[in-house]
Nucleic acid binder design. Sequence first.
DNA 1: CATGAATGAGCGTTCATTCAT
DNA 2: TATGAATGAACGCTCATTCAT
Lengths: 214, 214, 214, 214
Amino acid sequence: MTPSPKTFENLPEEKRRRVLDEATVEFAEHGYHQASVNRIVDRLGIAKGSLFKYFGNKQGLFEHLFGRAVAGFKKPLKEIRDTSGLTFFERIERSLVAGCRFVEDHPQLYRIYLKMLFNENFPLRERFLGEIRGAHAKYLRRLIEDGIQAGQLPADLDTDTAVFTLHAVMDRFFQDHAVPPLDGEPSEPAALPDKARSLAEFLRRGLAATPSQE
Amino acid sequence: MTPSPKTFENLPEEKRRRVLDEATVEFAEHGYHQASVNRIVDRLGIAKGSLFKYFGNKQGLFEHLFGRAVAGFKKPLKEIRDTSGLTFFERIERSLVAGCRFVEDHPQLYRIYLKMLFNENFPLRERFLGEIRGAHAKYLRRLIEDGIQAGQLPADLDTDTAVFTLHAVMDRFFQDHAVPPLDGEPSEPAALPDKARSLAEFLRRGLAATPSQE
Amino acid sequence: MTPSPKTFENLPEEKRRRVLDEATVEFAEHGYHQASVNRIVDRLGIAKGSLFKYFGNKQGLFEHLFGRAVAGFKKPLKEIRDTSGLTFFERIERSLVAGCRFVEDHPQLYRIYLKMLFNENFPLRERFLGEIRGAHAKYLRRLIEDGIQAGQLPADLDTDTAVFTLHAVMDRFFQDHAVPPLDGEPSEPAALPDKARSLAEFLRRGLAATPSQE
Amino acid sequence: MTPSPKTFENLPEEKRRRVLDEATVEFAEHGYHQASVNRIVDRLGIAKGSLFKYFGNKQGLFEHLFGRAVAGFKKPLKEIRDTSGLTFFERIERSLVAGCRFVEDHPQLYRIYLKMLFNENFPLRERFLGEIRGAHAKYLRRLIEDGIQAGQLPADLDTDTAVFTLHAVMDRFFQDHAVPPLDGEPSEPAALPDKARSLAEFLRRGLAATPSQE
DNA sequence: CATGAATGAGCGTTCATTCAT
DNA sequence: TATGAATGAACGCTCATTCAT
């Protein structure tokens, strides 16, 4: 009856991993409401009651699972932010590659994130998305400010708009990297590093010139 | 078993509109699978059997409703494509505004589109997304080619990448226009026309320079 | 609201025939309860209300349709009963052939009859089956009595048992003629006339000897 | 989606029996499609979900229930086939009695079998009927061959026709034993043993003479 | 602590029948 | 007279959740 998250923590590491992995796949494939606790326990071969003992209910399971993942969404950013001796555009390029790497390494988590983006009924959506977006915005703002200070970006750049645009373009870059194109679409115009460099160059030009050059 | 779309066509205009509006709201709020035919008919105050007479089944209802919408997605593009005497960037700017106008006029349809984007289980997803994306890609390609011919874009521009980037940025522009920002986020940095001009200018710079200028 | 069978009688002959034929096929394929009035009117291309005006309700339609058919079930018997100059076994043989001819000419009606046989929920089952069986029993009894009088059957034959047995065997003969054998079964060991003669011969021997001959 | 027949096997014997009995009655009374899972669970006083956990779906319930019955259809035959020291006709007589006993002991299963006979839409019909008919045909063929070897049947008997005829007559014998005669029909001309002996004698004569004696 | 049988509201869907036009 | 839109009970089935063992 009590959620008792202690129970789950006491499980052997291997089993804990399997439980979370299987559940992640289910949520990634079906979203939250269409995900079926029945299917999860069936695939795991454990009793239904056990899962509810561990996490209280479906939402508890999701919260546990995705809460741990949120940290993962932030990690690649930190590593790059702490690099020194790189220009703004090199950092953007590395961010693109690092983000794609994360998407490749944790495709299921990214699929959940994408489903959560536009599904207002996803539980804890506000909290999780807020955390992720906040971290990314903060990261990008920091990068831009560093870039301005280093003279790599025009001093009169509108930081808010730049954050928005960078965020938008980069997010979309990851999306296209993760989601298989529809049938018949021209897929994979180039390999990842080339695509990243190409986009970084594009952004460089977009941001570099002073807006008053008109 | 008896789809009989005739039945629906024979209904008085006002009722037809109410049915489609209510159903659209339901799909917009809950996506496809979580949308409830029960809720729809309850809100409409009609019998469940009636809805199934009109559209055969849930998917038929969705197909009818969203199929009509797809045409709406394409219309604003056509109008701009047929303008003459405008530069490439003026056209992009108008596209952004027109797209936002559509999103504002049909917020529920756009919400459905967004939910469909990352939910692989959405029925008819491939068909509808393919149609929409195809139309947009074709439209953008045309714009870019016109721009090159008019000397407003560099002749050696990689058209494929340009289409991809334009599409990505514009799509995201509409998304941010449509989806209310999460609590506490800095919302609405600027009014629509300013945002559109600002982004168009950004894209102008990104595309204008020749990539070989390095 | 009123059944108003007059309405149907006033229809042009051709339309009346189509309505009954289509309905007969539906009942033959699905039995009574699984038969769908929707499907019938769809195939006919007439309004649902019309059918209910004609026959009041589903049962009225079935009653009309099968009531007319019952006469058909009796007709072949009468023709043979009125033959003279034929022996008992020749008459049996002709009955078998005539019955098979009827089954071939009206396969849908016979399928309905077979479905009715063991489905107690068929409406009007008692009345229709009673009529058909009664006519057949009366017919067979007459044949047997004629046969005894003509010295073609033993005088001490138990008429009741003979009627039962004849009825059973002949009915089954028609069933096997009508119902396609299951996959892989040895079908069609012989053509109809041979089968009929063979069975008549078998019955001849079964009935001919006096039971006391042991 | 989770058939899980384990669940049902784990139930206490008494409950398992009640569930199957109640379901059998429902199918016997209404056939497959008109049988109502709702009615079954209402009579049982259990939740609807439980039944679906046990058998996956309606067809699974029917398959379980009737699959077990099919074995029962074959058992009485085996016992007689393995008797020795009995003549062909004694074996036929015993078969008739044993078959009737089975029909009396399991009237609901036999009613299902009869409904299945002429209802082409019965699920699993081909499989179940094929199994039953196959076993019976094999059994009768064996009996006839034994009878020929023992000199109790003419050596030149057409085995195929004999199997068909025996099968037809015996099947019909059971049917008349099981199905209550229609109102007003002369019922029960004799008790079972007498009827069986009488029919066996009839068959003896039908088969005994050589067909060439004409 | 794990189990898994039980629950019952909810789902999408079908149907014979009614009745205003 | 013919129409066909409207009805709503019933269908087979799924689900997250509970709790006695």
